[in-house]
């Protein structure tokens, strides 16, 4: 049974969906930056890249993302999970500001505010579309001659 309101555990799973993606992407980027340019004519280095440490870490984080993402999709709509997952960008930006002391421009603060408002919007609503019960079929059963 899916729930329209989320439990703390379900919020935690949505948080994992949010945070694992940007961290995984950053690891992939760092891993791919050390490789020579890959072309469609010679795609084999792309397969070899999968076995380098940064790519492995990136893949591990993305597997964590995928497991929590599948769990979230089993009790929430795709159009609910996707905007909520966008909150990860805000988490990474705030971590880089307060932990790594990076400067955040006015444009980025605007982005943070917009994403926060967007996630707030979607989080206020139900997480799952209620499908109507097959009323017509049950009525037909009731009125059918015995």
């Amino acid at each position: 049974m899916a729930h329209a309101r989320l439990s703390p555990r379900q919020y935690l799973i949505l948080g994992l969906v949010s945070v694992c993606t940007p961290l995984g992407d950053s690891c992939l980027s760092r891993g791919m930056a050390h490789l020579p340019p890959i072309t469609l004519a010679h795609p084999f280095p792309l397969i070899a890249a999968v076995f380098t440490p940064w790519i492995i870490l990136g893949i591990a984080l993305l597997i964590g993302y995928f497991a929590s993402y599948l769990t979230a999709l089993s009790w929430a709509d795709l159009s609910f999970v996707m905007p909520a997952a966008g909150f990860g960008n805000v988490v990474i930006a705030l971590l880089s500001h307060f932990w790594l002391h990076e400067t955040i421009s006015l444009e980025r603060w605007a982005g943070i505010v917009l994403i926060t408002i967007g996630v707030g919007f979607v989080a206020q609503g139900p997480s799952l579309t209620e499908k109507p019960a097959p009323v017509a079929a049950s009525i037909q059963d009731e009125v059918a001659p015995q």
């Binding site: 709509d77 159009s79 966008g86 930006a93 980025r108 605007a110 943070i112 917009l114 979607v122």
Partner: peptide
């Protein structure tokens, strides 16, 4: 066939613009 109402459209567009700014 999800109920993508005005709230969800607004959220998708706001997050989309926010990600672009970020």
């Amino acid at each position: 066939h999800e109920n993508v109402d005005r709230r969800r459209w607004s959220a998708a567009v706001l997050v989309c613009i926010g990600v672009y700014f970020l």
